[in-house]
Design a protein around this nucleic acid. Structure first.
Lengths: 100, 100
DNA sequence: AGCTTATATAAGTCTTTGATTAGATATCGG
DNA sequence: CCGATATCTAATCAAAGACTTATATAAGCT
């Protein structure tokens, strides 16, 4: 699965958002997202297989951690478009300047 | 449909990539992507309904044009993760510096 | 008007994928 | 060893979505 498909799912974005401020166990992620436990595990597996999170066993829990580098691919794809909307913003600014 | 889901589909990313260097008619987009015409129309409709492209009738053709601003939402979501991978890159650099 | 080109839409099929329920595995505390 | 907790996996179902074929609409040309 591509990172694009991985983050397309709202549940998985919620999981990632919950991981921004550090690694968490599955139970904590269930609580944070409101997802059922099996559902959480399934989405975490997808994220793990995509390489966006990694998992380390910590006693009877599993700590999931972000591997944000994997999202670089999204950022790189976005780059040409970013250039475009920057230029439209600039055009808008020019327009507003002319109007004032 | 969210912009996330919209760009998750490879065919739609191909269409967007073909539109980066300016508006194109449907036929040109078919040729550029190798998608069938109905398929192209369907994906273009999805992109249009999501607001990522706009369409203007030009005689018997329809010119599709990028509305890159709509992808700002992706960029904004990505921001916190960008901060993370920047710091991991910095950590890697520090590590390499120590090693040398 | 009739033919052609360009695009959109509809119907049908097939695949993918998300959610739930139930059960399996493993670790911890006594 | 046993019960409780934490997590994973399997099976099943339902829904979403992608692709094809066929058809409709509309503009352009002669």
């Amino acid at each position: 699965m591509t990172p694009f498909e991985a983050v397309a799912e709202p549940a998985r974005r919620a999981l990632l958002d919950a991981l921004v401020d550090g690694p968490k166990a599955v139970g904590a992620l269930c609580a944070a997202t409101g997802l059922s436990q099996p559902n959480t595990s399934r989405h975490l597996r997808i994220l793990r297989e995509t390489g966006i999170v990694s998992c380390t066993a910590e006693g009877q829990r599993r700590l999931y951690e972000l591997r944000a580098e994997r999202l670089l691919e999204l950022d790189r794809w976005l780059a040409p478009y970013r250039a475009l909307w920057r230029s439209s913003l600039q055009a808008l600014e020019r327009h507003l300047d002319e109007g004032s």
